[in-house]
Design a protein around this nucleic acid. Structure first.
Lengths: 214, 214, 214, 214
DNA sequence: TATGAATGAGCATTCATTCAT
DNA sequence: AATGAATGAATGCTCATTCAT
């Protein structure tokens, strides 16, 4: 792996584990057994590292929430979407835990965040429309967009919510699968008789993951 | 006012205006025309100041969300609750903007937060039950608790959400009245024919406030 | 001596001995056996220290180059002026050695420099006029100002000139007395028969000092 | 052009434009689209680059200030000398702006500077003698050397002086033509009736250049 | 010749906190 | 109660230079 990518990966890991605020650039360099100078050879400053991680986030969102091709729809497709939700939360959990702080310090990043969230909203709306059309969900057309928005808000603040509500020390995969289940619960409210069975299986699937110890 | 209280008030003001992170203890002391040593005579450390502010928060919540006495119910009562929601968000907005950060640094404070939130949840549930009983709302008994929870979550993260979504520089009273309106909108979904008129007047009331310039 | 003044004096000393560029704030603090934090308690930053030294420079120039009272004029008065020239060069030699650099980094300081130099020019002109009137010098009235200017330029760049011309390691008092002698030489060109003797004695006085080993 | 020369030219340009201090070796390499490693293949270190630029300076001085052949003397010859003064100041202005700093860091370079300045002094003296002999100037023989010295000092510190005196942002060609005019003014003081006209034309020539916008 | 990743000592500055008075 | 000088560990970042390829 290239040094630049190693720095990004190590930073992401340390940010997720110890928080972005308390992870210093010297920390990251030391963790990689490299000099701080080399880190600054590859990145202009700490903000630049965060922005590069944000690019990963953008790319992931972009690819994960594309509408599916017509013939594809079955449990696997839905699982891929819910897995993507989980993966996003888990992979970038430091960001969700400090969104206000991180975006508050970097106006350019905030603009990028707004942009990508707008796209996510669009894609999510399309996805829900498709699921309605294919008889998996039953949502009034004028409420689809609001549903997508609710889901986005839930996903965006699930980690913050958990960090303020649970007395545990940190976020585990199980915590995030709980979040996935909450989203599923919202879907369940709009399930059709066709999809009830599928959703039951999905719930079983993620319940099992939510119970797994770290 | 006693020195101790002056410190609390000044800290609250500065935290709200400039953020807790960038408000130093020397800053607070200077703002009060007092020595940092004196500040540390009255408080063990910065955390101690935040804890004292948190006590104000607890007291406010405790007194504001008590069930009303039977004969009272009219528009004024509802306004008093919604005003209390607004007041809480406005008065302690620095906390809402940094909840994860603040609670993450102080486990004892987190425990107090959990406790007070549990009480708020209880009181809110009782309140909703009362409003149903008095024919103002129509919510299935087993859904009342979940409704209270949704409202709490909306209030808790409205400020964070606004700080990440809007590209404006900061939180204004109008922003928070928008939040109050969102909560009202949820209530509206459960309004009875008796209360429809009342809710319309409430909406008018807060819409006007949300439009007022800073 | 107050800590603030001790910092100024130590900084001045270290700047003069080792150059301003290579004298770090930690250096200064260590030299005084104090923490860097304390240094920054008394001064906002390094620039602030330099500005405070510059205030000393301003005050010195202001007091040293006042016109003399009529009855005063004798050798002692002239010696006091030439001594002031020497003292200024010696006391603030780091500044003269790095004028371009120091003023180039701090526009506000440059403005103060321009202002004080304008005042020095005025005072020097008045002084020369007085000396002419008292029969010590004979300069055409329209050339007095230009003479003052030449002297100022000579004093301002004597140290720089010496640092580029001599292969010795540094500036000594003797070097600066040489500079004083050069200025005296200019005066000599305008001496009257009344003052010739006085100037001869002055030259002897400073020649002796210029020959003294460090 | 050879890589080595390209490095020298780029360094000279960047030093003149942005100052030697704030022009890093990586800067120079990037400006040339080359790796820092390659730069260090051609030069041992930054000092080595400066020394190579200094060689250009030496060569220029050596060739520009040679006595003229007897039959040549007319306005053109004088213009060529004054143009050479201008060219030297303009081409190597970063050096004049930081002479103390640059020579203070490199004792060997200082020795070369002393040597070349001695030669310049000699040549300038010869030149003035020739001009006297040819009836263009009238200077007492024992004062010729001192006149040459004064001119050298004026040229050497004109840029430094301007950088400390003007509140403008930087050195322009006009600034340096002003310097040339100052030198001309000194010559004027020793002009003969034969040369008065010539000097007037020279003054006109350089005044026009000094007034030209950048 | 040339690349470009890597080094590492060093710097100005911050801030919660302490403590003698 | 109050002062205010003092602490010191920590932080993000720079840049001339090296060296394996």
């Amino acid at each position: 792996m290239k040094t630049r990518d190693r720095i990004i990966q190590a930073s992401l890991q340390l940010f997720n584990e110890n928080g972005e605020r308390s992870t210093t650039t010297n920390h990251i360099a030391a963790h990689l057994g490299m000099s701080p100078g080399n880190l600054y050879y590859h990145f202009r400053n700490k903000e630049d590292i965060i922005r590069s991680i944000f690019t990963l986030y953008e790319n992931h969102l972009e690819s994960a929430f594309q509408p599916y091709t017509p013939q594809q729809l079955d449990v696997e497709v839905l699982i891929s979407y819910f897995d993507a939700i989980f993966y996003t939360m888990w992979q970038f959990r430091f960001m969700y835990a400090n969104l206000v702080d991180i975006l508050g310090r970097d106006e350019a990043l905030k603009q990028r965040y707004l942009k990508v969230q707008t796209r996510v909203q669009t894609h999510a709306t399309e996805l829900l429309t498709q699921l309605c059309r294919d008889g998996f969900l039953c949502v009034a057309p004028d409420k689809i967009s609001r549903l997508a928005d609710s889901i986005r808000m839930m996903v965006s603040f699930w980690i913050s919510y958990q960090l303020t509500q649970s007395d545990g020390s940190g976020i585990t995969k199980a915590t995030l699968y709980e979040g996935v289940l909450r989203v599923l619960m919202i879907f369940n409210g709009y399930a059709t008789s066709n999809s009830a069975n599928t959703f039951a299986r999905l719930e079983q699937h993620y319940s099992a993951l939510a119970l797994r110890p770290q």
